[in-house]
Amino acid sequence: MGEAERGESAPRIRIPFWCSNGHETRPSFASDAQIPETWDCPRCGFPAGKDRDNPPDPPRTEPYKTHLAYVRERRSDADGEAILAEALAKLRGEI
């Protein structure tokens, strides 16, 4: 199936984008399309911008936290001791 069967293709433009690692990406867009501010770099996955000298900062990823780490953020050691004492008292039948 050639261009004759599909009709003419829309006029295209190639826009350069650069990521913080210096990778250049040139996706093609229809000439009347709205050009996005950022584009994902296909090499490293970081966001890329149109300004070569000031590319977007890479996203900050938080390290994986366990359930216990989240509990420790919400509770103090004194709270933990009180909850533990209450749970042990229930198991011993004191409550």
Rank of each mutant, 00 (worst) to 15 (best):
R12G: 15
R12I: 15
R12T: 15
R12N: 14
I13Q: 14
I13P: 14
I15W: 12
I15N: 04
P16Q: 01
P16H: 07
W18P: 10
W18H: 02
W18Q: 01
C19M: 12
C19R: 07
C19G: 04
N21D: 12
N21Q: 14
N21Y: 09
G22N: 00
G22V: 08
G22P: 06
G22L: 02
H23I: 06
H23E: 06
E24T: 09
E24V: 02
E24G: 11
R26Y: 09
R26S: 08
R26W: 13
R26C: 12
P27L: 05
P27V: 06
P27M: 02
S28I: 12
S28A: 11
S28M: 07
F29S: 04
A30I: 11
S31M: 13
D32C: 00
D32N: 05
A33L: 05
A33I: 04
Q34S: 13
I35P: 12
I35Q: 12
I35H: 01
P36S: 04
T38F: 09
W39F: 15
W39S: 00
C41I: 11
P42G: 10
P42C: 10
C44F: 05
G45Q: 10
G45K: 02
G45S: 04
F46K: 00
F46L: 02
F46W: 04
F46P: 03
F46C: 11
P47M: 02
A48Y: 02
A48G: 02
A48E: 09
A48V: 06
K50Y: 11
D51P: 04
R52G: 15
D53A: 13
N54S: 03
N54H: 15
N54W: 10
N54P: 15
